[in-house]
């Protein structure tokens, strides 16, 4: 991914809102954006995993990005959306507050991420883009959807479950 970026002078981003901040993911990773729908709860998964949905015959897991980043729970609204992304062969739906636009961002407007930004760990960030007066937090999706971390979280929730059973 890194190599590609250097040759392209601008990036196309899908821009969305999450807990009052503006985030962006590369358009190439976005499969589609769908409205909220019935999500089937899956037991024994980390809290941020909302469940699975039926996307035209495929079973797709859905995560709540707010919960993923620990940004607090919010009511789902009419503007809530599921962004279906595909990273490294894994397809996942991410619940966001709203999707605002598709944006072209010149590559030299992107700066490395500060250590902590609005509560989201820098490890999940690829950089910060500046567009006019707007700051767009660019997500490193491969990190956000990382499996190792997921496993660890799963383990923890397992222990929780075990604890509640005792």
């Amino acid at each position: 991914m890194q190599a590609e970026k250097q040759t392209v002078s601008e990036e196309q981003l899908v821009v969305f809102e999450l807990a009052g901040e503006t985030y962006g993911v590369e358009i190439a990773t976005v499969h589609e954006i769908i409205r909220m729908q019935d999500i089937t709860d899956i037991p024994r998964t980390p809290e941020f995993v909302e469940g699975v949905i039926n996307l035209r015959g495929r079973i797709i897991p859905v995560i709540d990005l707010r919960k993923r980043f620990g940004l607090g729970v919010a009511e789902q609204t009419q503007s809530s959306r599921i962004i279906v992304v595909e990273v490294g062969g894994v397809t996942v739906g991410m619940i966001v507050d709203s999707v605002s636009e598709v944006l072209r961002l010149p590559a030299n407007n992107i700066e490395p991420p500060p250590a902590v930004i609005s509560g989201v760990d820098a490890a999940y960030l690829r950089g910060v883009g500046k567009m006019d007066d707007q700051l767009i937090i660019l997500l490193e999706l491969s990190k956000v959807l990382e499996k190792e971390e997921k496993k660890q979280l799963q383990q923890e929730s397992f222990q929780e479950v075990a604890a509640t059973q005792e």
């Binding site: 899956i42 024994r44 699975v52 897991p61 397809t91 799963q154």
Partner: peptide, 15 residues
């Protein structure tokens, strides 16, 4: 299958 992201969940065979 439930897919790679969720992996094997004990007690579930799929969906």
């Amino acid at each position: 299958p439930l897919g790679d992201y969720l992996g094997q969940i004990s007690g579930l065979a799929g969906a």
